[in-house]
Amino acid sequence: MKTLRDNCQTKLVAFDLDGTLLDSVPDLAKAVQLTLAELNLPTQQQDNVRGWIGNGARVLVKRALSGDINGDIPKDLFDKAYPIFLKHYADNLNTDSELYNGVEDTLAAFKRAGIAMACITNKPEQFTLPLLKEIGLSQFFDKVVCGDSFEHRKPHPMPLLETAKFFNVLPEQSIMVGDSVNDIIAAQAAGFYSICVSYGYHGEDDVHQLGADVVIQHFSEIAQLLEKAA
Rank of each mutant, 00 (worst) to 15 (best):
N92R: 00
H156N: 11
G51W: 01
F85K: 04
D76M: 13
D105G: 13
G211I: 10
G136W: 07
L129G: 07
N122G: 02
E221H: 11
V13T: 09
L137W: 09
M176G: 01
H208I: 06
N40M: 14
L129T: 00
M176E: 02
F167D: 06
I84E: 00
I53G: 11
V181M: 08
G136I: 03
S24I: 03
I135P: 08
I222M: 06
Y100Q: 02
V197M: 07
L129I: 08
Y100T: 14
T121E: 03
V215P: 08
K62H: 10
Y100F: 12
L137Q: 13
T10C: 12
L129S: 04
K133C: 07
I135C: 13
K80T: 01
L161P: 03
Q33L: 10
A29D: 03
S174Y: 04
K165R: 15
F140Q: 03
A229I: 05
A223E: 09
Q209T: 11
D105C: 13
K133Y: 08
T3W: 05
M1C: 06
D91K: 04
L161H: 05
G56Y: 08
F85C: 04
R58I: 08
D47Q: 15
Q224W: 05
Q188V: 14
I185G: 01
A212D: 13
E38W: 06
P130Y: 00
Y199D: 06
A187L: 11
S66Q: 11
E227S: 15
R63L: 00
R58A: 14
A113K: 11
K2P: 06
M176C: 09
K30R: 03
D205E: 05
T95M: 12
N182L: 08
P155F: 03
A81H: 00
I53H: 06
G56D: 06
A186Q: 06
V144L: 06
R58N: 13
E104N: 11
D179A: 01
R50L: 12
G203Q: 09
F192W: 11
L41T: 03
L41R: 11
Q209I: 07
R153L: 09
K111Q: 15
D27T: 04
F219A: 06
T43K: 14
G147E: 10
N122T: 08
K165Q: 13
F110G: 00
Q46E: 14
E134W: 04
G114H: 05
I222E: 04
D6V: 02
F167V: 07
R50Q: 12
I115V: 14
E162W: 07
V13H: 08
L21R: 02
Q44V: 15
S174F: 11
N48C: 14
V145H: 05
